[in-house]
Amino acid sequence: MEAIRLAVLGLNQGAKAARDAAASERFDLAAVAGMGPQAQAVAAELGAPLYEDYQELLESVVLDGVVIALPNGLHLPAVKAALAVGIKHLLVEKPIADTEEDARMIIDACDQAGATLLIGHQRRSSATMLFLKQFIEAGNLGDIVGIQCSAIYAKPDSYFDIDWHRTTGPLLINAIHDVDDLHYLTGMRVKRLYAAARNSIRGGEVEDSASIVFEYAEGPTCTYFVSDGVPGPWGYDLAAEEMHFINCRPGENSLRVFGTKGSFGLPNMDFYRYGPGQYGWTEPLLKTHYEVGRPDPATATLEHFGDLIDGVELVPRCSGEEGLATLKVVQAILKSAESRSVVELDAD
């Protein structure tokens, strides 16, 4: 089978995908697009032709697929440009877009062109997430009653040297991952939510912490806290040992799912339950620990994209519609935080 000719547009968020493609015998990194010293350094490191204008790249290079890792507001024009030259496989970095309107236009454009659209919510390719999803679907937890989730990180000062990191808070950067995790793991959709956001840590123009209560159409509730300015190990990326550029602190959970038959902590992978014929706090609570692999989920997402291009898999792990559903929830969180009111969502 011939190597998949791939281009990566955007070498800030897209540098990881470019490096993974260059390191894989399955892909031929045909070209990259980006501007500035970082883009020049990544292109030189990988020996890939660099275009400052992604439109010129798309019109000049024959491709099997494209990774779009540009700023969110540029996703729609880049998708249209790729479709216009006949590209049929697109991996678009999360979130799918800045607005629901742009997201809908991206989805419709890909549908009309008969193109495969994969949204880069990479945790859907995490071994821990895949395990828990199957564990829940098998009925091991019984009926889900509630969920606790957190995304707690202390981002270094240098992180905020990038302009858009100062104008986009952890709700759109971090919480969007966790909202998508909950959609993926449970299959449930948020019906109602209330959010309280603060910027008391750095005093910036966007939030640096927020607490949210979700009510799901199927009945369960979820409490969620996110911050990018708090030391602590209770964020998935810190605890899961999957992202190698982060100084990990394994052994803690960022997500707890509570069911009528038992409870599960992730990513520590512990299941708590009572034995047959036993129930209640006077009985011994049993713990089962599961060991699963910890492959890099971003790398696994690119491999999944390759499977879609080669026809090995036919269904994207995160479709455009699923990416839009996640975006709608995060936009509702932002609306609730600003208005200090409960927001209702269409959970269909």
Rank of each mutant, 00 (worst) to 15 (best):
residue 1 M to C: 11
residue 2 E to F: 01
residue 2 E to C: 01
residue 7 A to H: 02
residue 7 A to N: 03
residue 10 G to L: 09
residue 12 N to S: 14
residue 14 G to Q: 00
residue 15 A to N: 05
residue 17 A to R: 14
residue 17 A to C: 14
residue 17 A to Y: 15
residue 17 A to D: 12
residue 18 A to Q: 06
residue 19 R to W: 03
residue 19 R to E: 08
residue 22 A to E: 11
residue 27 F to R: 05
residue 28 D to C: 10
residue 30 A to F: 12
residue 35 M to E: 02
residue 36 G to F: 11
residue 39 A to W: 12
residue 41 A to Y: 09
residue 42 V to H: 02
residue 43 A to W: 09
residue 43 A to K: 08
residue 50 L to T: 00
residue 50 L to N: 01
residue 59 E to A: 15
residue 59 E to M: 07
residue 60 S to Y: 02
residue 61 V to I: 05
residue 62 V to K: 08
residue 63 L to D: 04
residue 66 V to I: 14
residue 67 V to A: 09
residue 68 I to N: 13
residue 69 A to S: 13
residue 77 P to K: 10
residue 79 V to N: 06
residue 85 V to G: 14
residue 86 G to A: 02
residue 91 L to E: 05
residue 92 V to Q: 09
residue 92 V to H: 10
residue 98 D to L: 14
residue 101 E to S: 08
residue 105 M to E: 14
residue 106 I to Y: 12
residue 109 A to T: 12
residue 112 Q to S: 15
residue 114 G to W: 05
residue 115 A to H: 07
residue 117 L to C: 05
residue 120 G to F: 03
residue 121 H to V: 04
residue 123 R to K: 07
residue 124 R to V: 13
residue 128 T to F: 13
residue 128 T to P: 07
residue 130 L to C: 02
residue 131 F to E: 08
residue 131 F to D: 07
residue 132 L to M: 15
residue 133 K to W: 00
residue 134 Q to L: 04
residue 134 Q to W: 00
residue 138 A to L: 13
residue 142 G to R: 12
residue 143 D to N: 09
residue 145 V to K: 09
residue 146 G to L: 11
residue 147 I to A: 07
residue 149 C to A: 14
residue 153 Y to V: 01
residue 163 D to R: 10
residue 165 H to I: 02
residue 167 T to Y: 11
residue 172 L to H: 11
residue 173 I to P: 00
residue 175 A to W: 02
residue 176 I to S: 15
residue 177 H to E: 14
residue 178 D to C: 15
residue 183 H to D: 03
residue 191 K to W: 03
residue 192 R to A: 01
residue 194 Y to R: 07
residue 196 A to T: 13
residue 199 N to L: 08
residue 203 G to R: 01
residue 204 G to A: 05
residue 204 G to K: 05
residue 207 E to W: 06
residue 210 A to K: 00
residue 212 I to W: 05
residue 215 E to K: 07
residue 217 A to R: 10
residue 219 G to I: 08
residue 220 P to Q: 04
residue 225 F to W: 01
residue 227 S to V: 01
residue 233 P to S: 10
residue 235 G to M: 13
residue 239 A to P: 01
residue 241 E to V: 13
residue 246 I to S: 11
residue 248 C to S: 08
residue 251 G to F: 07
residue 251 G to R: 06
residue 252 E to N: 00
residue 252 E to C: 00
residue 253 N to W: 06
residue 253 N to T: 03
residue 262 G to T: 00
residue 266 L to I: 06
residue 267 P to C: 05
residue 267 P to R: 04
residue 269 M to P: 01
residue 269 M to F: 07
residue 272 Y to K: 07
residue 272 Y to F: 15
residue 275 G to S: 12
residue 277 G to E: 15
residue 282 T to Q: 15
residue 288 T to K: 15
residue 289 H to E: 13
residue 289 H to A: 14
residue 291 E to M: 13
residue 292 V to E: 04
residue 293 G to W: 09
residue 303 E to G: 04
residue 305 F to H: 07
residue 307 D to Q: 09
residue 310 D to E: 07
residue 313 E to F: 04
residue 314 L to T: 12
residue 319 S to N: 10
residue 325 A to M: 03
residue 325 A to N: 03
residue 328 K to E: 13
residue 331 Q to S: 07
residue 335 K to L: 13
residue 335 K to S: 09
residue 346 D to S: 10
residue 347 A to Q: 09
residue 348 D to I: 01
